[in-house]
């Protein structure tokens, strides 16, 4: 046996590794299954089930003339974001720390910060793709109109993803293991989805619950998305709530995150 000393030519351009790292993380994301099945497949399945229920396609007086399905499309979008950010991301990152993968990267020029960046990029990208898929399936399959205020809708999606991914990073920062991170993420998921109107649409909640919902990231997200779908620019308060979660949990995660 002999080790060849052939060196490939110096890698071109700046940071060739970051692109490869992101592509590799995307492959792992797909192989890991939690994200693709629960974060993308399951919301799509719900959309198809809801869309096939006859009464869901009739305008409802309670929803100001909107159909139940129209009310549920934003809920399904935040459902997907919540799975990716609260379950898939913390499980992967806490697992990476547990297995010493982050520490291993610390000994290379790449460094673990860029691994976090790559993970966030993957989750943002999957979110964008998934939102487009849901909107297109809802439009073509069940005649749900595309959002009338498209820019407002896009901003609400990105802010919602930022807020939830920050919470997910915080969970990953504080949980001891990949399994613990997934458990904490799941525990957070249900109340957050409740206030997003998964079981009872926000408009039909009692006043107190509606109030709380306004202050939760997913409640604010669903309302901003529903508004933008109907053609309004999202309310400043909704955007501020999401931005506040993104900043507060993002900073806390950055402060608490440990590489080992």
């Amino acid at each position: 046996m002999s080790v060849t000393a052939t060196a490939s030519p110096p890698a071109a351009a700046s940071r060739p590794g970051l692109g490869r790292l992101t592509v590799t993380e995307l492959k792992l994301f797909i192989r890991e299954r939690v994200g693709p099945i629960w974060g993308v497949g399951f919301p799509l399945l719900l959309l198809i089930i809801f869309g096939s229920i006859h009464s869901f396609n009739k305008p409802q007086k309670d929803f100001g003339g909107a159909t139940t399905l129209e009310i549920y499309v934003p809920v399904l979008i935040v459902f997907s974001i919540a799975i990716l950010a609260l379950s898939a991301l913390p499980m992967v990152l806490a697992g990476y720390r547990e297995k010493g993968i982050l520490r291993r990267l610390q000994t290379t020029p790449m460094g673990p910060v860029r691994l976090l960046t790559a993970q966030l990029a993957v989750n943002f990208a999957v979110t964008v793709v998934m939102v487009i898929v849901i909107l297109v399936v809802a439009r073509l399959g069940y005649g749900v109109a595309l959002p009338k205020q498209l820019a407002g809708f896009a901003i609400a999606v990105l802010l919602a993803a930022a807020a939830l991914l920050a919470v997910g990073l915080f969970v990953a920062a504080t949980a001891g293991s990949g399994r613990a991170a997934q458990a904490i993420g799941t525990i957070l998921f249900f109340p957050m989805m409740f206030f997003a109107g998964l079981w009872v649409p926000i408009a039909q909640m009692p006043k107190l619950l509606r109030y709380i919902s306004h202050g939760t990231p997913l409640g604010a997200a669903v309302q901003a998305l529903q508004g933008a779908a109907e053609g309004h620019w999202p309310h400043a308060q909704q955007l501020l709530v999401m931005a506040a979660y993104a900043v507060a949990f993002g900073l806390a995660a950055a402060k608490l995150f440990r590489w080992e």
Partner: peptide, 14 residues
Amino acid sequence: LYSSFYRTPADWRA
């Protein structure tokens, strides 16, 4: 992946 992190990596296939 790891070879892409370095300025002058070894031939990883070798």
